[in-house]
């Protein structure tokens, strides 16, 4: 058996006495599109933050391509091929759209802490950044400060920054949060194209968004995965209906 792109082994996290993540086991294969859904407060974002090294876990392991990520700083995890977006738009607001993308290319193109070459004279950076801008349909916003973009455009830029570094494991935290229906459709389509051939792990609140996109879905409720499987199986699972969809239906009424 090949090693999973990302593997969680009995992952736990407590804040004080409260256990937020209560023993999560999950293996996501190469090039799989995996969605983690769950009601508000289920711990989805916390799980994300544990995987990406934003918080240290209390116990358990996170393995990226078989390598244990314990004690690694976010920048080290990123260099190992994992990239993430944020639930709250997290871009460089005062820099131009182009600069945002170019900065996200620097490390992966091997520039590191280089202080002797000019970014403006590096065609690989300029072309690479424009290719990404083309993919996320922001070429015509190229020279505007990123902070002035519309919300949907900022979300698209966030995805662009996340994929630009060429990481093979992409994690998106509620990429469609706060969007209208048409914007959601647009972003889902964008995610589908830009993550072609990569491992995608995304957190979503709304099952409908991920239904057509994900190969497998996990349902997280109160810090535990209550089901993992193909979308239709998960949807049919009575436990899921009770714990999650039921609650969602109630909320709608």
């Amino acid at each position: 058996m090949t090693t999973a792109a990302l593997e969680l082994i009995d992952l736990r996290k407590s804040f004080g006495k409260t256990e937020i993540i209560r023993g999560v086991n999950l293996a996501v294969g190469d090039a799989e599109r995996h969605a983690i859904i769950g009601p508000n407060g289920a711990g989805k974002s916390t799980l994300f933050n544990l995987i990406t090294g934003r918080f240290p876990q209390t116990s358990g392991e996170v393995r990226l391509h078989g390598n244990n990520l314990a004690g690694k700083a976010p920048f080290e995890i990123n260099r190992m091929g994992l990239s993430r977006s944020f639930q709250i738009t997290n871009i460089f607001p005062k820099m131009t759209v182009f600069e945002n993308v170019r900065c996200s290319l620097l490390w992966s193109l091997g520039y590191k802490y280089n202080f002797w070459s000019m970014v403006g004279r590096s065609p690989d950076l300029t072309e690479g950044a424009e290719q990404i801008l083309d993919q996320i349909n922001l070429l015509n916003r190229r020279d505007l400060p990123a902070g002035t973009l519309s919300y949907a455009e900022q979300r698209a830029l966030e995805i662009g920054i996340t994929i630009a570094g060429g990481a093979d494991v992409i994690m998106l935290d509620e990429p469609t949060a706060g969007m209208s229906h048409s914007e959601t459709d647009y972003i889902v389509e964008l995610i589908r194209t830009v993550t072609e051939g990569k491992t995608l792990i995304m957190v979503e609140h709304d099952m409908g968004v991920v239904f057509g996109l994900a190969d497998r879905i996990s349902v997280l409720v109160y810090g535990e995965l209550i089901a993992t499987g193909r979308p239709e199986d998960v949807r049919a699972d009575p436990k899921v209906q009770e714990a999650y969809l039921g609650a969602a239906l109630e909320a709608e009424h």
Partner: peptide, 8 residues
């Protein structure tokens, strides 16, 4: 924080 998640 975002810069950290870009490898820096």
């Amino acid at each position: 924080e975002r810069a950290e998640f870009l490898g820096y």
